[in-house]
Amino acid sequence: MSEGETPIAAAVPPAEVPPLVRVSDLRKVFDVSASALERMMSGAPRRLVTAVDHVTFEIGRGETFALVGESGSGKSTVARMVVGLLERSAGRVTIDGTAVDDPATPRAERQALRRKIQMIFQDPYASLNPRWTVGRIVAEPVVTFGVLTDSRAIERRVGELLALVGLAPADRVKYPHQFSGGQRQRIAIARALSAEPAFIVCDEPTSALDVSVQAQILNLMADLQDRLGLTYLFISHNLAVVRHMADRIGVLYLGRLVEVRPARALFDDPRHPYTRMLIEAVPDLEAPSVVRDPARGEIPNPIDPPTGCHFHPRCPHVVERCRREVPALLDGVACHRVADGSI
């Protein structure tokens, strides 16, 4: 990570190197209506929720891009669409210029592409099959992609991977329940790395862990990125963690990106009123006695989101235009007031 040196340069990938991951106009609409039969009986209309709306971003090679947001922001939905676990309603995801699930792409190429993408999940108690040994869990991608077929070679590879994440190679004969939460997340990381991916989507990888263990995992992830040149899409609700890990950050509010900027710039000079409110709201260990103005209101129900700019009912700078028009993302900020220079 080049954090601390030239954050701006790291944040904007140099023009000659194309980004590794390109996500454009990503959209997800969930149908949350009652069953067809019940709708017919009660005459209720279909209810659709737009969980993710026109989300566009790029991630450069070796970069960590973070999506941060509160509940209902759609950050996990984006993650699951990017890796292909969830069908997209609209939009495009390309890795290395190739669309991940485009039927036009040859099957072999799609499989090769799949190998480059991995995911680390939030809950290490749910992401490891409780009835499998650690060795079998870690080896599953290796076996599935046919990277290695000789059982000796697989065993050796599993041992190396476990050592890489700070566990003992002999741990491969144990079961997940024999490990603590932090150790399980290490196993999940070893598994994610086993087929040598280029791009890892991390969905709240430390939010189920205690802080001292969280530090271990965050440090490990940063080390692995340095050693293996990994690219991360980092999903989190924790601003301090995001600040620590990310080169660039996208702030999501009710399914829309409201601000996308380099990490240092975003925290030093937040521009969107929501980003400001969010950063203000984080309890500060260093200056705890400062009485601050607590944030206003709560996140509206995504089934019935506000018109125009989704943030307008909570925004201290709201004007009439905000209630009607959806602001476009200009210079990394989606706000009418920022765009016309009034805040």
């Binding site: 991995q118 995911m119 087929a195």
Partner: peptide
């Protein structure tokens, strides 16, 4: 819906194998 099944789906493990193995 558990994540270990999702993790297997992610790397393209066929459905019958997910059913019998996981």
């Amino acid at each position: 819906h558990r994540d270990y099944v999702q993790a297997a789906r992610l790397i393209g493990v066929p459905s019958w194998k997910i059913l019998t193995g996981h």
